[in-house]
């Protein structure tokens, strides 16, 4: 069986076993929807009081926020195996992965497809749709097909980026054997930061999320195209069509780091 088919098989099994606990699934999905929805309600309250943020309108914030949350919820659902790496190592479950004649990345991706992340996904998708509709009413230039293609490409880049962060997080937990909260700065923190235009942040922060962990490349720049705006920082207009590649590149780098981390794991045997 090829890797892709095995992956879908594992995902199918994971979904079925989560559906054995339906009440828990529904409550957790709803819970996540309410928590992330509450977060956006806070943003709405601010805009309701102050009108705009620098010269960004509420619907533009909605595009940024929605894009980041949709992408992160997908990545979050895909990478529970990496997120739980510390736990798996402590429990000795990771050895189980190592005695299978398959790629460890494939097996960890297949470890669980976390369906309850649909709470954040639906919430993010609703806000993203709202933002896109208002943007198009106020004259966004891409048209339906252009918007869809740009959006999809941005989501691919952003998902790749978040998956990459999770893989690096798992690499670090080989050493610490604890799940490390510090990486949440880049996942949960990154999603939250992407909810606002990067121009509002101080320089070092922008640099970190542009060149270190290229979050701006997968959310902010493509979002500018979607809302039909130019970057107040002066970046060329088409940058948003190119920049999501940075997310894919980040994922590639994280996979290389994973290989080294595996070697390290087997030579130290934490």
């Amino acid at each position: 069986m090829t890797g892709t088919r095995l992956y879908w098989r594992l995902v199918g099994i994971s979904i079925r076993s989560q559906m054995q606990y339906k009440v828990s699934f529904i409550l957790q999905s709803l819970g996540q929807m309410i928590v992330t929805g509450g977060e956006f309600l806070g943003i709405w309250a601010l805009f309701d009081r102050f009108g705009t943020l620098q010269e960004w309108a509420f619907h533009e914030i909605a595009v940024l926020y929605g894009l980041a949350n949709v992408a992160f919820s997908v990545a979050d659902a895909l990478t529970n195996g990496f997120d739980s790496a510390g736990y798996l190592i402590r429990k000795g479950e990771f050895d189980r992965v190592m005695v299978r004649p398959r790629s460890t990345v494939l097996l960890l991706l297949g470890y669980e497809f976390t369906v309850r992340r649909i709470g954040r996904f639906l919430q993010g998708a609703a806000i993203l749709s709202y933002g896109l509709v208002v943007s198009s009413e106020s004259g966004a230039p891409l048209g339906l097909v252009g918007t869809a293609a740009t959006l999809l490409w941005a989501i691919v880049g952003a998902v790749a980026l978040f998956v990459g962060i999770r893989i690096i997080q798992a690499c670090v937990s080989f050493k610490t054997v604890q799940s490390i909260e510090v990486m949440n700065v880049f996942t949960y923190g990154g999603v939250y930061a992407s909810g606002y235009p990067f121009t509002i942040y101080v320089r070092w922060f922008r640099m970190l999320f542009t060149y270190g962990v290229p979050l701006a490349a997968v959310t902010y720049y493509p979002a500018l195209l979607l809302m039909g705006r130019l970057d107040p920082g002066g970046a060329v207009r088409w940058i948003g069509w190119v920049s999501p590649i940075a997310g894919v590149a980040f994922l590639m780098v994280s996979l290389v780091i994973w290989r080294f981390a595996l070697r390290w794991y087997s030579s130290t045997g934490t």
């Binding site: 069986m1 098989r9 594992l10 099994i13 076993s17 000795g92 479950e93 050895d95």
Partner: peptide
Amino acid sequence: FGQRTQLWWDLPVIESFDLLADIY
């Protein structure tokens, strides 16, 4: 490993076997 199972906790035994057949 006697202390921990190689099988999938929520799957019927036969399906764990089928899945292993795919993995191998």
